[in-house]
C-alpha cells in the first residue's frame, strides 16, 4: 500500500458518509420548517398571554406578557375541555369498533374465493374515502334533517315515527356514522393488502386438513392480519381524538352540538372566536401530548403482536 492511496481513502469515506445526509436534507429542512418550527412556536405562545388595562380601547392598553404555566393550569382545570374529551371518547367507542369490524369483514369477503365483482366492490367501498370530510358531512346533514331526508320520508310514509337524528340523544351516532362511511374503505384496503400478502400454500394445506372457508378466515387469516389491524386501530384512535370537521359542519343544522363539543373545536373557538391564541396553543400541546401518550401506550401494550412479523 503506497502513501497516496492511504491518504485518499479516509477522504472518500467522509464523502461517502455525507451522501445520505445530502439526500435527506430536503426532507429535514421541510420537516423543520413546517413541523418542528411551528411546534416550537406553539410552545412559545403557550407560555404567554395578553394583559388588557382598563377599557382596552386606548393606545397600547393591550400588552403581551409572559404567563408561565398559567395557560396550562387553566387548560387542565377546564371542565368543558374534559367533558369534550369524554364526548369524543364515546364517539370513538362507537366509531372505531364498527369501522374496523366492517373493514375486516369486507376485506375477508373480498379475499374469499367465491366473491364476484371483486374490483367493483373494492372501489365502491373505497370511494367514500375520496370524498372530503366537509362535503361528506354536508351530504349526511341533508340526509338527517327530517323534512329533506328521503329516509325520514320513508319512515313517515310507513306510518313510523321520525327519528330525530340530530337530536341530543342520537347526534353522536349520526357523527360516528359519517366517520364509518368515510373510513371503512381505507381500512379495508390496508387489511386486504395484508391478506393478499399471506402465502396461498397456508390455505391449501388447511383445506387438505379439512378446514372450511369460515375456519380459514377465523383461524388463519384473522390472526395473520393482526399487525395490520393494530396499525389501523392506532390511526383510528388518533383521528377520533382529533374529530373536528364533522361536528363543525353539522353544528349550524342543530341545537345539540356546542361550539366546544370536541377538544379541537374548543381550540379553534379559543383561537379564532375568542382571539386568544395563547390558551389555544397550550390546549393544542396538551391534546398532542395526550394523543401521543395514548397511541404509544396502545402500541407498547400490543407491541409483541404488532411487530411479530417484523422480528421473525
Amino acid at each position: 500500500m503506497d502513501g497516496a492511496t492511504a491518504a485518499r481513502k479516509p477522504r472518500r469515506r467522509t464523502a461517502h458518509r455525507l451522501v445520505p445526509y445530502a439526500f435527506l436534507a430536503p426532507a429535514i429542512v421541510m420537516f423543520t420548517l413546517f413541523l418542528l418550527a411551528p411546534i416550537g412556536y406553539t410552545g412559545y405562545l403557550s407560555l404567554r398571554k395578553v394583559k388588557v388595562e382598563g377599557l382596552g380601547l386606548g393606545r397600547g392598553s393591550r400588552r403581551e406578557i409572559f404567563a408561565g404555566l398559567e395557560n396550562y393550569r387553566q387548560t387542565l382545570a377546564d371542565t368543558e375541555l374534559w367533558r369534550g374529551a369524554l364526548r369524543v371518547l364515546g364517539y370513538g367507542a362507537i366509531l372505531t369498533p364498527v369501522m374496523l369490524g366492517l373493514a375486516l369483514l369486507f376485506a375477508l369477503l373480498l379475499d374469499s374465493r367465491r366473491t364476484g365483482f371483486r374490483r367493483f366492490s373494492r372501489i365502491s367501498i373505497f370511494l367514500p374515502f375520496a370524498v372530503p370530510v366537509v362535503i361528506a358531512s354536508l351530504l349526511w346533514g341533508f340526509l338527517y334533517l327530517p323534512s329533506v331526508s328521503p329516509g325520514q320520508h320513508l319512515l313517515r310514509s310507513a306510518g313510523l315515527p321520525e327519528m330525530d337524528l340530530l337530536g341530543p340523544d342520537l347526534i353522536v351516532f349520526a357523527l360516528a356514522n359519517i366517520g364509518v362511511w368515510g373510513g371503512v374503505g381505507f381500512n379495508m384496503i390496508v387489511i386486504y393488502t395484508a391478506l393478499r400478502a399471506i402465502p396461498r400454500e397456508l390455505y391449501e394445506s388447511a383445506r387438505i386438513d379439512g378446514c372450511s372457508e369460515f375456519q380459514i378466515a377465523v383461524r388463519i387469516k384473522i390472526p395473520l392480519v393482526v399487525p395490520a389491524m393494530i396499525m389501523t386501530t392506532v390511526f383510528s384512535v388518533i383521528a377520533t381524538l382529533q374529530v373536528f370537521s364533522e361536528p363543525v359542519t353539522l353544528r349550524p343544522m342543530t341545537n345539540s352540538l356546542s361550539s366546544t363539543w370536541s377538544p379541537l373545536m374548543k381550540i379553534y373557538q379559543d383561537a379564532f372566536a375568542r382571539n386568544d391564541i395563547f390558551t389555544a396553543a397550550a390546549t393544542s400541546i396538551v391534546v398532542a401530548a395526550v394523543t401521543l401518550v395514548l397511541s404509544f401506550g396502545f402500541l407498547r401494550a400490543v407491541q409483541r403482536r404488532a411487530f411479530a412479523g417484523e422480528s421473525q
Binding site: 370530510v133 368515510g182 373510513g183 381505507f186 381500512n187 389501523t232 390511526f235 383510528s236 388518533i238 383521528a239 382529533q242 373536528f244 379541537l264
Partner: peptide, 8 residues
C-alpha cells in the same frame, strides 16, 4: 384514516 390525520 391516515391521510385524514395527516391533513388535520
Amino acid at each position: 384514516m391516515r391521510s385524514r390525520w395527516c391533513r388535520q
